[in-house]
Simulated assay, not measured.
Amino acid sequence: MLNRKVSFVTEFTPFLWLAGGGLIGLAAVLLMAFHGRIAGMTGILSAVLPPASPGWTWRAAFLVGAVAAPALIVALSGDSIGFASSTPAPWLVVGGLIVGIGVYFGSGCTSGHGVCGMARFSPRSIVATGVFMASTAATVFVIRHVLGGL
Score class of each variant (00 low, 15 high):
residue 60 A to S: 13
residue 85 S to R: 11
residue 100 G to L: 08
residue 132 F to H: 05
residue 78 G to F: 04
residue 75 A to Y: 09
residue 89 A to R: 10
residue 130 G to W: 07
residue 106 G to E: 06
residue 94 V to A: 09
residue 70 P to Q: 15
residue 108 G to T: 03
residue 110 T to M: 02
residue 124 R to Q: 13
residue 124 R to Y: 06
residue 78 G to Y: 04
residue 88 P to A: 10
residue 96 G to T: 05
residue 70 P to N: 15
residue 115 V to H: 09
residue 74 V to N: 02
residue 81 I to L: 14
residue 73 I to L: 15
residue 135 S to I: 01
residue 78 G to T: 05
residue 119 A to P: 02
residue 136 T to V: 08
residue 125 S to M: 04
residue 72 L to M: 11
residue 115 V to A: 06
residue 67 V to E: 08
residue 117 G to C: 05
residue 76 L to W: 10
residue 99 V to Y: 04
residue 123 P to C: 08
residue 73 I to D: 15
residue 128 A to S: 08
residue 134 A to G: 01
residue 120 R to F: 02
residue 97 L to N: 09
residue 60 A to V: 11
residue 102 G to N: 10
residue 106 G to A: 06
residue 134 A to H: 02
residue 79 D to N: 13
residue 77 S to G: 12
residue 115 V to M: 07
residue 82 G to K: 15
residue 72 L to Y: 10
residue 94 V to Q: 02
residue 90 P to A: 08
residue 64 V to W: 14
residue 120 R to T: 10
residue 132 F to R: 00
residue 92 L to Q: 05
residue 61 A to C: 07
residue 131 V to N: 00
residue 136 T to F: 12
residue 85 S to L: 06
residue 64 V to I: 15
residue 63 L to P: 00
residue 107 S to G: 07
residue 73 I to K: 05
residue 69 A to E: 11
residue 95 G to P: 07
residue 128 A to M: 10
residue 132 F to K: 10
residue 64 V to N: 07
residue 128 A to C: 09
residue 93 V to I: 13
residue 104 Y to G: 09
residue 102 G to S: 11
residue 89 A to Y: 11
residue 98 I to S: 13
residue 62 F to V: 07
residue 60 A to C: 01
residue 80 S to I: 14
residue 86 S to A: 12
residue 134 A to E: 00
residue 89 A to N: 06
residue 99 V to M: 10
residue 111 S to N: 01
residue 136 T to G: 12
residue 124 R to G: 01
residue 93 V to N: 03
residue 100 G to I: 03
residue 83 F to Q: 09
residue 68 A to V: 15
residue 75 A to Q: 06
residue 126 I to T: 09
residue 104 Y to D: 02
residue 133 M to P: 00
residue 65 G to H: 13
residue 136 T to H: 06
residue 69 A to L: 14
residue 83 F to C: 11
residue 126 I to H: 09
residue 117 G to I: 12
residue 107 S to D: 15
residue 69 A to P: 03
residue 128 A to K: 00
residue 77 S to A: 09
